[in-house]
Design a protein around this nucleic acid. Structure first.
Lengths: 179, 179
DNA sequence: CAATAAATATAATGATCGTTCTATATAAAG
DNA sequence: CTTTATATAGAACGATCATTATATTTATTG
């Protein structure tokens, strides 16, 4: 609705993802966004709430991204999801999974809103995959999730394109050729 | 050498891993370690240097851990490494890869000593695997690394024992049965 | 015991943190 | 124009941050 609010979310997401949640102060966010501090507090009750809203926004974008790679071919559902995840790793400058990073920084308190938001996000992704093909076992879903998480993590230290090629190759070997 | 120095490293590693590097202040470290702040600065020039030393200590422990799972059976080298990695995930309360977490928090400056220490660590692990079996292709090493990173990341939101079982199963399928 | 080194307590530094208050200014809607 | 909501600048809050200075005490070693 509000343009200022969206600007704040965009700038905050960029800075949080680049430097971490504790490392970035609100001052740096409002400076880069060129917005007054009281405007930020008018839209968000606290820094924690801003972080939660940033994560929710990012989750929505990620899910929309995956949706673009859906297919009717039941044999290639997971393969196409892998291609979607890989394409997204290429699109964003990959610095790891922002959700896991958020959880890590706030995991000292498991009841913290940020931690709960991340837990819900990961559940949502698993349920999404499960719903696409109800014939998948829970083990298969876990193994596919392991590939997605592994590619995201490995891309932090190795060339992203090369990592994506391995993700797709492994998905083929584990879930297409040997289904 | 110094007992105080080692105490500081142990306490700092625990707190950094539990809450993150920016989230933990030196005050909390010296309080929990029951050591004066000037003693810390007597052993470490700065917080950054303390972090680097914590990481180097952790790398040494991880490598020693993997070494305990080495075998002469060339067919099962990677499988045993996977079992070692899995066993370590079970041992430590897994909150993700501490090295990647460190890199993420300091990646804003790629020349930062912490970032370089992490990059070197990841290179060392890959070289270690490469040296164990020179017949492995670079793609195979990358794919195995993807499995290790994936299991570490997935264990942050899913049951660690279950994740470890998947890691071993996937390693068997990709690198033993179908080598 | 004397000499050297290591560790201590305490306080100060200047900076930044998240958050709140006050008061003014701009914009939208009646 | 007048009302109402939104955004602004700027200062203040108490707390904490990493780091340094000073001065005292404890351990170690010759």
């Amino acid at each position: 609705m509000s343009k200022k609010r969206e600007t704040l979310l965009i700038v905050a997401e960029k800075l949080f993802y680049e430097h971490g949640f504790h490392a970035i102060g609100l001052k740096q966010i409002i400076t880069e966004a060129d917005i007054a501090i009281m405007t930020l507090y008018n839209h968000f009750a606290s820094k924690d709430e801003l972080i939660v809203e940033v994560l929710k926004r990012r989750e929505q974008q990620y899910m929309e991204y995956l949706h673009r790679f859906l297919t009717d071919d039941r044999e290639a559902i997971l393969l196409n999801l892998a291609k979607g995840h890989a394409q997204r790793l290429m699109d964003i400058q990959s610095r790891g999974c922002m959700f896991l990073r958020a959880k890590e920084e706030f995991a000292g308190d498991p009841t913290h809103p940020v931690v709960q938001t991340v837990n819900r996000h990961k559940e949502n992704v698993m349920k999404f995959i499960e719903q696409l093909d109800s014939s998948l076992t829970s083990q298969q879903i876990l193994q596919f999730s392991l590939l997605l998480e592994g590619s995201t993590a490995l891309a932090e230290t190795e060339d992203t394109a090369t990592v994506c090629a391995q993700l797709i190759d492994m998905t083929e070997k584990l879930f297409v050729r040997a289904a």
